[in-house]
Simulated scan of single mutants.
Amino acid sequence: MYSQLLSLAALAATVSGHGLISKPTPRGPGDASSAACGSSVVANIKGDLTSHVEGLPELAAKDTGYHGDLCNLWLCRGLQYADNAANVQAYKPGQKVTIEVQLTIPHAGSANVSIVDTKTNTIIGEPLLSWPSGYADERQFYAHQTPANQTKFDVTIPEDLGSKCADAGSCVIQWWWYGTGAKQTYESCIDFTA
């Protein structure tokens, strides 16, 4: 009976997923994320790396380990650079970067890929790529007709970043998706320098 419950729990964790960047390596949780956002938030993310942001603020508010001045759940789901320093990508202005996204449960909505200043949580310039509507439409997904450019695409590192992204941890490439019907936000970030 116990093994059946564990199997059901594992299945539930698998089907609850939604989406995240799979390549290049995105930010993941670790000790710094736990210290900033609390162990409840990190446990939730570790339990489902593709989970949405909604619900995390409530978990954080109940956790004595949450430090709102250090943890911005609306930037990379609160995942911290310090846990991901070994995964920083070095790109040059004008370089094309191929990004792959894993979609496990679709929710039609809008999405974009942008360079985000991590100090201010603001997009630098214009989004590198955007889907104003129709992103991850469940009707296409379940009919195996999801457009290929929604799960694998190229972005070009802008020429005009100047020194804004010269230091590791200053900027991320953030994939952001909002499922309109589900009212859920998904974020995944790549640390990089340029």
Rank of each mutant, 00 (worst) to 15 (best):
A194K: 12
S188N: 11
W74M: 11
S22D: 10
L73P: 01
T151F: 07
L75E: 10
A35W: 00
E54A: 02
T156C: 06
D63K: 02
A82N: 11
A43N: 13
T122A: 14
S33T: 15
Q95R: 02
T193L: 11
A148F: 01
D63Y: 05
W131H: 12
C165M: 13
S188C: 12
N84S: 07
A36I: 03
D167V: 14
Q145Y: 00
V42C: 02
P132H: 12
S130L: 08
A90R: 14
G47P: 12
Y2G: 05
V88C: 08
S3V: 09
Y2V: 09
G125T: 03
S110W: 12
K119N: 14
A60I: 10
Y142F: 14
G65K: 02
Q102W: 06
G181T: 12
Y135P: 00
P26D: 10
Q145V: 01
V97E: 09
S163K: 06
E126W: 02
S130Y: 05
L6R: 13
D83Q: 06
S133M: 06
V88N: 06
D69Q: 11
C37D: 02
E100C: 00
E187D: 06
N84C: 06
N44E: 12
Y2D: 14
G38T: 08
R27Y: 14
A143N: 13
S133Y: 11
G94L: 07
G179T: 09
C76W: 03
A85T: 15
G169Q: 04
K164E: 11
A148L: 09
Y2M: 05
K152I: 14
N121Y: 09
A61K: 15
A90D: 04
L103W: 02
I123P: 07
D167I: 10
V41K: 12
Y186M: 14
